[in-house]
Simulated scan of single mutants.
Amino acid sequence: MTSDQLRKTPDRTRAFRRFRAKLRALYHGESPQAVRFRLAVIGVDLALIAFFIAAPFLRDSRLFLPLDLAVAAILATDLAARALAWRTVKDWIRRPIVMVDLFVLLTLLLPTVLINLAFLRVLRIWTLFNSEFFWDTVGHRFDDTRWEDVIRAAATLITFVFVATGFVYTIYVGEDGGVSGYVDALYFTVTSLTTTGYGDIILPGVSGRLISIVIMIAGITLFVRFAQALFRPYKVRFACHVCGLMRHEPDAVHCKACGALLNIPNDEA
């Protein structure tokens, strides 16, 4: 290494550290500028999700591939920035939500190789509404409340519907059974999930019956979870220091599992 390189290296290192500190302030800070930045990022995320949902209808358009590559560039930039804003890239990449996002990015970077897995891009719905990034920015008012449970359950249910629809469309479109387009696949998924089963669209073969059973069982389970989050009596999240029980009545003074004294914070004076 030359003397010029030795003089430049510390400057570049300091500049890179300042850059990471700036990203950390934007992605994790509480300043008005950071909040506005995160709201803009969430807006872009919602636009990407809308593109993923509409992709089956746009696939035959000449603009689809350029849009696909543009979305890949946007998502890659965002994920790289989030990685640099985290404590360490190694810790960041180990998170399950990040692994799902990286897989979504991979389907965008290799559209021809992973074309049959493109329907899994809608998993971005689940990763967005289950991320700390979303709840620290938009959902902080509803964090640890009934509405957090409702939104998370709804996001999981919607994600399942579109993943199942994409799978049915990818595997069975054009086959005997009546799935001639994406709307037919969506219609079949919803009728199976609700156990309505009109019978006008039936997946052929043993594999089709097994997939229908999976959709019905998983869909009903997720729907029941959503209904429970919406209608069941609300319980606050507060870990008991003795037994670790997480859910308690809002006005609980003692843990119902072990009887330990609780000190649940609230907004009352």
Rank of each mutant, 00 (worst) to 15 (best):
L230H: 04
G208I: 08
G259Y: 13
G259P: 08
A229K: 01
D251K: 08
K256V: 06
V236T: 12
H241Q: 13
G199Q: 06
I217T: 12
R232V: 07
V214E: 06
L193P: 00
T221P: 00
R232A: 15
C258Y: 09
Y234K: 04
I215A: 03
S207E: 09
R225G: 02
G205P: 07
S212P: 05
C243G: 04
T195Y: 06
H254T: 12
I213A: 15
P265L: 12
G219T: 02
V206E: 11
C240R: 07
L222D: 00
V242K: 09
A239M: 10
M216F: 08
M246I: 03
C240G: 09
P265A: 14
A239H: 07
P233T: 05
G199S: 06
S192Y: 00
G208N: 10
C258E: 05
R237G: 07
A229G: 04
C243F: 04
V236G: 03
A260N: 09
R232Q: 14
I220F: 13
I211M: 15
C243Q: 05
P233N: 10
I211R: 07
G199F: 09
S192N: 04
I264V: 14
C243I: 04
L230T: 15
F231R: 06
S212E: 14
T195L: 12
G199N: 07
F238Y: 15
L222R: 00
A260D: 03
L203I: 06
F231L: 13
A239G: 05
A252I: 03
R237A: 12
V236I: 10
A260Q: 06
G244Y: 05
